[in-house]
Design a protein around this nucleic acid. Sequence first.
DNA 1: TCATTTGCGACTGAATTGGTCTCATATTGA
DNA 2: TCAATATGAGACCAATTCAGTCGCAAATGA
Lengths: 145, 145
Amino acid sequence: MFKLSKKADYGLIAVKHLAMHREQHACSATEIAEEYGISTMLMAKVLQKLARQRIVSAKHGASGGYQLAKEPSQITALDVISAIDGPVLITSCVTSHGNCGASEKCSVREPLRRVNESILSVLSTVTISQMSEEQNERALVELQT
Amino acid sequence: MFKLSKKADYGLIAVKHLAMHREQHACSATEIAEEYGISTMLMAKVLQKLARQRIVSAKHGASGGYQLAKEPSQITALDVISAIDGPVLITSCVTSHGNCGASEKCSVREPLRRVNESILSVLSTVTISQMSEEQNERALVELQT
DNA sequence: TCATTTGCGACTGAATTGGTCTCATATTGA
DNA sequence: TCAATATGAGACCAATTCAGTCGCAAATGA
């Protein structure tokens, strides 16, 4: 119904967390999961996927964990989401093997493809560094009020 | 995983169909469903939802059916999608009763809320008349090649 | 009156997603 | 070296969501 999966959600939380703990020790999956009250196992899974896509780098062993593999300004929301959930496609029709093969007259594929690209562009404009900055701005606003 | 539901998809197809058969007789659910090879029952369901939101107007009885209730330029993709699937929310966190209550420290809610609004704005920019025009443009292009 | 068509709710089966468990492998530190 | 700590990967189950169906009521035109 047009919703982000929880895993993608957790991925964004994790990446943002790593961005805000940069230059420090690597964070373990357990550490991050506990901080946000998320299942450890699940957070581990999410971080594994992020590691596979080289968004974070993993360090095995005791006192190991994860660190960002790039600058926060070089990581977009789209990167994180598609690393976890696969490519962002608002319809399965976009690829040729969808069930649209049945209804050849499908007349909305092309318009939807455009909408899809707009959404992709929105998601790739938002970087992790932006997401971290925003929180600071809000903190300031809250101080003023 | 960030995908349009099939029902929403069918809704767009139906509304676009009605837009292109404007000023003509009302189209029955069966008629539209058969044209695009979609289950009649399901298309009926979809059109009922569209009717409930006053996007199309229904006419009971023999030789009845559906017609657009507004100008195609006044109907947006967002109207159709949210009429069928409910409000477009990329996370359940946006409303207060989500499971984000558990993890109070959720740090991505506000940034995601912004992304959500961008997507809403994209979807509300696309009108049905635009979606119909596009096809004409493509038809022209195809003639040229 | 009767065929046609929408309106609505209940229901089922399939697909997706959320979340867990287990075993293997790498690394650190005592 | 060895135990503890981490990640990596895949199988697995439960819960939710989604697609699609059915039955019955109500409206309407011929």
